[in-house]
């Protein structure tokens, strides 16, 4: 194949089903497909925080699950934990806690203790994980990623187009700013 390369685009549009931070009408949208047990996602986690801090209200950030379970045996459990917390309205706190405590994955009581500490119903979360209540949603995330050209974790999309640069704050911010400029010039959002 030759000619101009076009990066893949998101096949599942950002919507109400997603976990998002920032204003729904923010001009810049960053989507991450991630795996809570992936060390590269763990390394990208503080980078995303820096991106959010730098771009403030102009950025909306969305996290979708992409657990690579054959390499990461705790990844699905971790994703189910975050989704069960989401059902109690507290996705992001548990999402952050999982990434900040990757080394404790495989020790469920460590996470249950945190859930209780922040006044979540930890028993309900455990039951929902055992019943795999949120597995269909996680699989839906995963399949949407596969169809959108996610090829490993973390994979980011900027305003719907796959970002193939380094998973670090500075190049992500630069790519977001370029995308913002591009969309203003072409008159789309």
């Amino acid at each position: 194949m030759s000619g101009s390369y076009r990066a893949p685009r998101l096949t599942l549009a950002v919507g109400d089903r997603d976990h998002s931070q920032g204003a729904p009408d923010a001009p810049l949208v960053l989507v991450e497909y991630g795996d809570y047990q992936c060390p590269y996602c763990g390394a990208a986690y503080p980078q995303v925080k820096r991106v959010q801090k730098e771009l403030g209200t102009s950025l909306r950030f969305i996290f979708r699950n992409f657990p690579i379970t054959n390499a990461h045996p705790q990844a699905e459990w971790a994703a189910e934990t975050a989704e069960a917390a989401a059902a109690q309205g507290r996705f992001w706190e548990v999402h952050d806690f999982l990434f900040e405590n990757q080394r404790f994955l495989g020790n469920p009581s460590y996470f249950s203790a945190y859930e209780s500490k922040i006044k979540l119903d930890a028993r309900k979360i455990t039951e929902e994980i055992e019943r795999h209540s949120f597995l269909p949603r996680i699989k839906e995330d995963f399949e949407s990623g596969v169809r959108s050209g996610v090829n490993g974790t973390p994979t980011f999309f900027i305003n719907g187009t796959r970002y193939d640069g380094a998973p670090e704050a500075a190049p992500i911010v630069a790519a977001l700013k370029r995308a913002g400029k591009g969309s203003r010039e072409s008159g789309e959002r």
């Binding site: 795996d35 992936c38 590269y40 054959n70 596969v146 490993g152």
Partner: peptide, 16 residues
């Protein structure tokens, strides 16, 4: 030097 690289992804997608 990436985890869950191309081959790992295909292994995960074997059912597909």
């Amino acid at each position: 030097p990436v985890c869950s690289d191309q081959m790992g992804l295909y292994a995960q997608l074997m059912p597909e």
